[in-house]
């Protein structure tokens, strides 16, 4: 069984919600990646999404765009990231999920990429510019080596299509909470919870909500309707400004004793 499936089985058994932080690899230098992964695990991350910087991230808002630019200026490459994860893997126990646009993978060579991430102990991939219609370019090959291809559902995705998307996966369904790009939102659309509820009903796998989520109040409300959250831009900003105390508070939300989750 894949490490992602194991994690969710355990969460379900213990009645816990998932907290999945996203960080941009290479922001602050690739040498700090292992330490940051360790820190996130220590703070209570259920799994960690590792972002790969790309020159043209069309699904991302300014926080992740800027982090990507900083990472690229540091000379960060997909090859370098995979190598660092391979080195860090023995000290990290939670699932590691790579979030990358398709082109860096395409340039790497799809077979070589899959071979190397398997060696590195990476458990899943999210490719935001690869919808169901085009996923055969890589998803079946990932499946063969027991790496999860994590699919996305969005507020514009028709319900029957959400069902179809969810039916293909074994890890979790990444449910985008906004019609838009990544980045903090002060508020969500009034129909978000109804949408999450519908997704939860049709999805055969755990549902994680992501995009725009940045604080404990939002998380507390959203997890009423799903199995956990992905937080990206906020984590990226907290790392970039070295606010580790706030980072700990946020990531440990489902672990603190005073918290009902």
């Amino acid at each position: 069984m894949n490490r992602i499936e194991q994690t969710f089985q355990l969460l379900t058994k213990t009645g816990r919600k998932a907290f999945v932080p996203y960080l941009m690899a290479g922001d602050g230098g690739l040498d700090c990646l292992a330490d940051r992964l360790t820190l996130l695990e220590k703070f209570g991350a259920s799994a960690i999404e590792v972002g790969v910087p790309f020159s043209d991230p069309v699904a991302d808002g300014s926080a992740i765009q800027m982090a990507g630019i900083r990472a690229l200026k540091n000379g960060t490459t997909l090859r370098g990231i995979i190598k660092k994860i391979a080195e860090a893997r023995k000290q990290i126990h939670v699932p590691i999920i790579l979030m990358t646009y398709l082109n860096p993978v395409y340039a790497y060579g799809i077979d070589a990429f899959i071979f190397d991430i398997q060696e590195a102990g990476i458990d899943g991939c999210i490719i935001p510019d690869l919808p169901m219609e085009e996923e055969d370019i890589i998803a079946p090959k990932l499946h063969e080596v027991n790496i999860e291809f994590i699919r996305l559902a969005t507020p514009t995705t028709p319900l029957d299509r959400i069902k179809q998307i969810a039916g293909k996966g074994r890890g979790f369904l990444y449910t985008v909470t906004v019609k838009g790009i990544t980045g903090e939102r002060s508020e969500f659309a009034h129909d978000l919870y109804a949408f999450l509820k519908q997704v939860k009903e049709v999805s055969s796998i755990p549902v994680l909500a992501g995009f725009g989520i940045s604080n404990q109040e939002q998380i507390a409300e959203i997890v009423e309707y799903c199995d956990g959250v992905v937080v990206g831009s906020k984590i990226v900003d907290l790392f970039a400004s070295s606010r580790l105390r706030e980072l700990e508070q946020l990531v440990s939300i489902f672990h603190s004793k005073s918290n009902p989750f």
């Binding site: 935001p128 919808p131 085009e134 996305l152 514009t156 838009g180």
Partner: peptide, 20 residues
């Protein structure tokens, strides 16, 4: 049907845009 010209073309867009 899928919008391919040989290996080229296709629909490599975020899921949000698929409906559109």
């Amino acid at each position: 049907e899928k919008g391919h010209f040989g290996i080229f073309g296709g629909r490599y867009v975020p899921e949000t845009l698929m409906k559109a």
